[in-house]
Every structure is written in C-alpha cells, then in structure tokens.
C-alpha cells in the first residue's frame, strides 16, 4: 500500500479522535508508519457484527417476554458475553450457567447465586430480576 492510498474514512476510531498505525511505502518505495482514521471496508464488517449482536438481543428479549429465557440471558448478551465468558465471571460451571438462562430455573435460584450474577453484570439483584426490556 502506498502512503497516499492509506484510507482516511470515518470510523468508530475517528469519532473518538484516534488514528491507527499502518505500514505503507512512500514515493521511493521505502516502508514507514502512516496514520489511518479508518477504512470503510472494516467499518462495514464491524457494523455487520454489531447488527448481528443487536438482532440476537432482540430475539432474546422476545423469548424472555414469552417466559422461555431468564433475564440472565439478556444481561449476558447486552454485555457481549457468551456462556464461556459469563461462567468465568460468576465462577460457575458452564452447564450450570446454561441452565440458569432458562426462565424456569431462574425462578428457583438462591439469593447467593443471584448475587454472583448481579456482581458479574455490575447491577443490583433488583435490576437482575426486573430488566428494563
């Protein structure tokens, strides 16, 4: 890539006033650092992935309203976690976390377990039980 071809598109980085380093060649063909404010192709890929997360979240909200899934599923996805990550934060086996995603199991959870989840999500137990969805 030539230095003059380094993309300077708008991106999440440029909005935060950050530019990233890329390596590119100058007129004499010599390599050096150049700064890029963002690149459309990348931003599209990133947005695609964020949209998918949002879609998934909306689906989960529906399932919670239908009494299928528990609020833990909502907060997990809201904070971009999956079962593996969440199980790390609450210190429980993955199969237990998976069960707790079900509305039926969630109702029977002890205060102690609920507290673990509330701490992992940095919310109160009240918020955990009554998500604003």
């Amino acid at each position: 890539m030539k230095k003059e071809d380094v993309p300077q598109d708008e991106s999440g980085l440029s909005k935060a006033n950050i530019r990233e380093v890329v390596y590119a060649v100058d007129k004499d063909g010599k390599y050096g650092k150049a700064l890029s404010s963002g690149w459309e192709a990348k931003t599209i890929a990133l947005n695609e992935s964020l949209e998918l997360i949002e879609e998934q979240l909306q689906e989960t909200i529906q399932k919670i309203k239908q009494g299928e899934l528990s609020p833990i599923a909502y907060y997990m996805e809201l904070q971009r976690m999956d079962v593996v990550v969440l199980s790390g934060y609450v210190g429980l086996w993955q199969w237990r976390v998976k069960r707790h995603l079900k509305a039926k199991t969630f109702k029977k959870l002890s205060e102690k377990i609920l507290k673990k989840y509330a701490e992992a999500f940095e919310i109160s137990i009240e918020e955990l039980k009554n998500p604003k969805i």
Binding site: M1, Y23, Y31, W39, I44, E48, S49
Partner: peptide
C-alpha cells in the same frame, strides 16, 4: 455474509490484522 464479515474483521482489525500484517512483514523484509 456473517462468516465473511468475521474473516474481514480478523484480517483488518486492530490486534489481528491480515492485510495489515502482510505490510508489516513487507516492511520487515525491506
């Protein structure tokens, strides 16, 4: 499309870089 998006993100995002990494390797060879 989602898989392709993932490929592009892995290729070009900070800290993973594929296309970007090729240029760093080219700079190294120089």
């Amino acid at each position: 499309n989602h898989y392709l998006g993932q490929l592009v993100r892995m290729q070009e995002e900070i800290g993973t870089g594929g296309g970007g990494f090729r240029f760093i390797f080219a700079a190294f060879l120089q």
